[in-house]
Design a protein around this nucleic acid. Sequence first.
DNA 1: TACCGCCGAGAACGATCGTTCTCTAGACTA
DNA 2: TAGTCTAGAGAACGATCGTTCTCGGCGGTA
Lengths: 212, 212
Amino acid sequence: MNHEEARTRLLDAAGRLFYERGIQAVSMDELRAASGVSLKRLYQCFPAKHDLVEDYLLRRDARWRAELADYVARQARTPEDGPLVVFDWLHTWFTAPDFRGCAFINAFGELGAVSDAVTRAARHHKLAVLEYLTDLVRVLPVRDPAELAGQLVLLVDGSITAAAMTGAPSAALRARTAGAILVAAAATTTAATATAGPDASPAPVSAPTPSG
Amino acid sequence: MNHEEARTRLLDAAGRLFYERGIQAVSMDELRAASGVSLKRLYQCFPAKHDLVEDYLLRRDARWRAELADYVARQARTPEDGPLVVFDWLHTWFTAPDFRGCAFINAFGELGAVSDAVTRAARHHKLAVLEYLTDLVRVLPVRDPAELAGQLVLLVDGSITAAAMTGAPSAALRARTAGAILVAAAATTTAATATAGPDASPAPVSAPTPSG
DNA sequence: TACCGCCGAGAACGATCGTTCTCTAGACTA
DNA sequence: TAGTCTAGAGAACGATCGTTCTCGGCGGTA
């Protein structure tokens, strides 16, 4: 077996087991058994468990965002659809049998207090998602794309949490509905959203000013 | 030392240490040292660590919701203010030096896959918060209080996650702004929201229908 | 005073885990 | 064929942890 193939098999096993059961609940010996890679090779590829954990998170971040971007690129009928199609993808994810919430939120809750690398990886992931959503939102005629993207990210993380804990994928639909309202409210003009199809709000509103 | 006092001191220590560092990262011996309760007494109060974990979560749930409800009851100038004042409380929480996200999300990420009790406690907490928000929203003239409360819960959990990971308490302000938009959009009439003060949206919109 | 029961301190036990080491078998080379 | 290198299987090591046990001391009682 190649060194590169061993790495891949280890990361595959780690990706499955760490996500399913939590990082600390999976021993190196289980990873050896699940991957078919010997313990010696395992430590040649990853000198310590935290190295494997770090690469697991980095790979998951890249794949998660790539899948999301692919889905949005394929499913959005117009660029204006983009932000809301994100929630459709979330819905399909929530429906997957192995769905168990956000791997980064989980890892952060488990090891964020004791591992800088985990905290960094989680923060990086959330920031990257925010940037992706900001890009999606930028094609819309909105006053403050960064603000709207920040609001949508709240719905994304909130729905992931809700779906993970209650087991109900419908959190994605609720988030989508709320997201559509926020998008409409952030729009600068009514006419510009007329091309957005049935998702566009018929009457955008200005954002209320907080009083507290 | 009383049996009841030992219990209290143990739950105090557990509440602090479990939240700060994660459950698995805190040993029974550390709890003994932090609480000043002997190991023998510790096991008389809590026969196993998971019993202490369960009571830790139950107590935290009760206290967290009580603090939130107290704050809302004291700070909301009108009943219509209630839902948005929730986000003000979140902001003060996010600013606390020991803030490290939602204890239930953290515990779920760490042990949800291997502990039914943790999953139950986390689910119960999130459901109770949803019910509380539903009660707050019910005083507003909205078409579907349950739906609106469900949307606001997404913002609550999303902002907790964002604040925990990025360390920026401003996530609460962004969530509040978004919440105000959702509240306004859910309103049945414009006149009814006129009494809500500066938080009320000047022009409520109807919710767009999802297309996907 | 002698006895009894409870308590705290901490050693001890058994299990698990991350990591390293040993041993053996096979592949490659001169 | 003899020698050398490598890899895999799995034992071993050292540390930690949850839990239990032992021991010595202290308070209450006849």
